[in-house]
Amino acid sequence: MGSGTNIGRVRGLGSAQEGAHHWIVQRVTAVSNLLLVLWLVFSLIRLPNFEHELMVEWLSSPLVAVPMMLMLVSIFWHLRIGLQVLIEDYVPDHGMKFGLIVLLNFFAIGGAALGIFSVAKIAFTGVVA
């Protein structure tokens, strides 16, 4: 693909000079996912039960709320890149591909925002109900 010829660059076929960015972010978030999801798994299985009262009390602790929020950012970032690769591999139509990647961005940012806000609300309001 137009590796450096003038007409190739005009048509946008040359290197965008940022080809490795997603690759690196996917690996950085893989490491943070590894740490944070293992933290979640070990924390959850060590809880005595999963009643609402205990969940609120547990999530109110900064040492739970903060890693939970960081985990949401890490997970949604990682899955945004991963699902983009899925779409790029299996959706040949350019319009459909573009639309699905836009939807994916809405899903990733909206989902992360809802999750983080929920954790913040629990942490800041504590046991009310």
Partner: peptide, 9 residues
Amino acid sequence: LVWWLYAIS
């Protein structure tokens, strides 16, 4: 996971 956190909140 997000539904679970939302439901708790």
